[in-house]
């Protein structure tokens, strides 16, 4: 599904974010990406949806290199990848419903499908009763659910989550993890960058640990170790 082949990313100011990464993630996997701040987790995530370009190496998605995609194909790629951030990235001037519908509008879905899909997704993330609220009227956990709803509303193959529980208390974080797990069980590949030791240790999913831009561990059903 997703493959990194000798991928390095060096930012303009000579900071090496990733060094010679070789990783293969299969369709339907749930992967934790761990490592301290600056280890390269965010860069890893951003390379997949082409927010950043690799300095060296190839990134393959569904066996096709995304290195030299045309602008038009980049937007098509992004339609197949849902992204969730730590800061939710919701538009505060419109309701939860409109935030989720916005994604479909941008992808030029017909109104009938939008009116059908948005309530379904809000139901799934447990926000059915909050459709008309503004993001600012929601708690952090609810905002993140709204962001997840927006990311998955068009049924992408891949869901990327960059520290989605970073701003949430443990209980709320678990609620989010249940939703992500649920999405993964429905067949979506989920890649989540995180610091949350608790979550990683309890979920026992594939774990890729980054340190100074290099993969130091890649284990099935991995657990956080103290040294990371």
């Amino acid at each position: 599904m997703i493959q990194f082949v000798n991928v390095s990313k060096i930012y303009n100011n000579k900071v090496v974010a990733l060094r010679d990464i070789n990783i293969k993630i299969e369709k339907g996997e749930f992967v934790f990406l761990i490592g301290s701040s600056g280890a390269g987790k965010s860069t890893f995530v951003r390379l997949i949806f082409k927010e950043e370009e690799p300095s060296r190496g190839q990134i393959l998605i569904a066996n096709r290199s995304i290195n030299r995609l045309k602008k038009k194909d980049v937007s098509i790629l992004r339609r197949n990848i849902g992204v969730v951030f730590q800061d939710y990235s919701l538009l505060n001037d419109r309701s939860v419903y409109d935030n989720v519908a916005f994604a479909l509008e941008v992808m030029e879905y017909p109104g009938k499908i939008i009116r059908q899909r948005v309530p379904e997704v809000l139901e799934m993330v447990g926000l059915a009763g909050k459709a008309d609220c503004l993001p600012t009227q929601l708690s952090g956990g609810e905002q993140q659910r709204a962001a997840i709803a927006r990311a998955i509303v068009n049924g992408p193959q891949i869901l990327l989550a960059d520290e989605p529980t970073g701003n949430l208390d443990p209980d709320t974080a678990w609620g989010i993890m249940e939703i992500l797990n649920d999405i993964n069980r429905r067949g979506t590949t989920v890649i989540m960058a995180t610091h949350a030791v608790d979550i990683v240790n309890k979920m026992r999913k594939r774990l890729i640990a980054l340190e100074r831009g290099e993969v130091v561990r890649d284990e099935e059903r991995g657990v956080y170790k103290d040294e990371v």
Partner: peptide, 16 residues
């Protein structure tokens, strides 16, 4: 700009 960023993120075409 935030709205535009999100539009790009969810795969809006440039002309959209």
């Amino acid at each position: 700009r935030r709205e535009l960023q999100i539009m790009k993120l969810v795969g809006a075409s440039d002309w959209f």
